[in-house]
Amino acid sequence: MSDETSNPMRDAISEAISENPVILFMKGNPEAPACGFSARTVAILQSLGAQYAAVDILPDPRIRQELSALSQWPTIPQLFVNGELVGGCDIVSEMYQSGELAQTLGIEAAPAAAEPEPPAVRSAPMTIENRL
């Protein structure tokens, strides 16, 4: 642990972002969000039928610390698509309303008659916590 350049937590977060095309860092989990902003973001992703990975930042304060240092974004939630920060709840909400979010996620705007796909939520990449 004397190596100042070694930062396993940040590496694990960075890896999770690059390995998951759509990943949401949030407070709580999609089944039980622990914050209104995280809840709203989850609801938007689910309404689009997006497939995404979710990471709960609450179990260890260092997750948020390293995530924010990496993304240069101070607040939670944070949505990443194809390795890029899309934004937090405000931006995700705006992009959802304008239709840009579906486009960014590569989701066809569903015709009104179409059956909504059941939301597919993959469990959080536990490797982040296991590597502590």
Binding site: W73, P74, T75, I76, D90, I91, E94
Partner: peptide
């Protein structure tokens, strides 16, 4: 970009965000 616009506002408050200023929605 939206990200850059929001960062300009966040940068005004720095570490106070999430702490003294618990949550800040931006439009």
């Amino acid at each position: 970009t939206r990200i850059a616009q929001h960062r300009l506002v966040y940068d005004v408050f720095g570490d106070e965000l999430g702490d003294r200023i618990h949550a800040l929605s931006i439009q």
